[in-house]
């Protein structure tokens, strides 16, 4: 908008206005998009470190299988994260030379304190997830839902949604809800999607709710 151009005052005003209006509109859009896509997710999730840096890889090598630590109980329920009592079996004393193990033995084993593990895939209380139905009946592998966590050297940062208190892994890492793997997102629709594929039917409410 050159000032040398001879245009009537009113025209000038209108043009100026039209241009800036659009410009401001676009700025507004840009700000919102930036806030929504970049800043908001950062604010929404509280990052938490696990109490101990646990290496699945090391343990997997030592015990050989997932179900050595994550096993089914006699009544068919799944034990989930190991309790201190299980860990003590091997870790009564420091075995290796890692700092993590030392912390574990000194702060937890010695004080008989359960480790407050943060569970990435913990479903809300209203969900009844049957490991038996998936692992025993449908013979699915752990990896098909949990991915490669079993071979990881270190534990990822746990992200807790500040509003809901749930793990970010449930709603999905990607804020847009895009997923590539089964374990990228664990919302109800994801359960339904797989159920529909495998059984031809999303299932009834009570199949997974309690």
């Amino acid at each position: 908008m050159s000032e040398t151009q001879k245009v009537s005052a009113s025209d000038n005003k209108r043009k100026n206005t039209g241009g800036t209006t659009i410009l401001f509109f676009l700025i507004g859009v840009a700000i919102s998009l930036a806030v929504g896509w970049v800043i908001f997710p950062k604010l929404l999730y509280l990052k938490k470190s696990q109490p101990i840096d646990f290496s699945h890889a090391v343990h997997n090598e030592a015990v050989g299988d997932c179900d050595s630590c994550h096993f089914f109980r006699e009544d068919g329920t799944f034990s989930g994260s190991p309790t201190l009592a299980q860990c003590i079996d091997c870790h009564e004393d420091v075995q290796g030379d890692t700092e993590a193990e030392q912390i574990f033995v000194e702060e937890y084993i010695a004080q008989n304190k359960e480790v407050p593990w943060l569970i990435y895939s913990k479903q809300p209380d209203c969900v009844f997830f049957s490991h038996a139905a998936h692992v025993k009946k449908a013979e699915m592998s752990c990896e098909s839902c949990h991915g490669e966590i079993g071979t990881s050297e270190t534990l990822p940062i746990y992200e807790e949604n500040r509003i809901t208190g749930y793990s970010r892994n449930i709603w999905g890492k990607n804020i847009a809800g895009i997923k590539k793997h089964t374990w990228d997102r664990m919302k109800m629709d994801d359960c339904g999607e797989c159920h529909e594929e495998e059984t031809g039917d999303k299932g009834s409410c009570f199949q997974c709710h309690k």
Binding site: D75, G76, F128, A133, K210
Partner: peptide, 21 residues
């Protein structure tokens, strides 16, 4: 009332773990 549906779920879990349907 849910007809204690969770008791059904638990019974199924046990059956699956024991290799029953």
């Amino acid at each position: 009332c849910s007809f204690c549906h969770h008791r059904y779920q638990l019974a199924l879990d046990k059956a699956y773990a024991e290799g029953r349907d």
